[in-house]
């Protein structure tokens, strides 16, 4: 299972599912991380964490820990 936390800088992916057992899942969904949405990891901070992610025309900074509840697939795997 691949999550946003596993993506490299510049990599694009599509959200497959949100893990609702994760404590941050509700916040993550509220920020617009919903299945079917495309996202791109833009920058990684020093120590590779947090990530800045492009989603729905916005840039969102998110800790790897929180990004683990966003399951994704790469577009060419479709």
């Amino acid at each position: 299972m691949m999550t946003v936390a596993d993506l490299h800088s510049g990599q694009t992916a599509i959200i497959k599912n949100i893990d609702f057992s994760h404590p941050s899942s509700c916040r993550v969904v509220e920020y617009g991380f919903t299945p079917g949405q495309e996202l791109q990891v833009i920058n990684k901070s020093i120590f590779n964490d947090p990530l800045s992610v492009s989603l729905r025309g916005a840039l969102i900074a998110i800790r790897k820990q929180d990004a683990r509840c966003i399951e994704v697939f790469l577009p060419n795997e479709h």
Partner: peptide, 9 residues
Amino acid sequence: DNSSFIMEL
């Protein structure tokens, strides 16, 4: 409790 960091840039 759960610590998180999600923030709009």
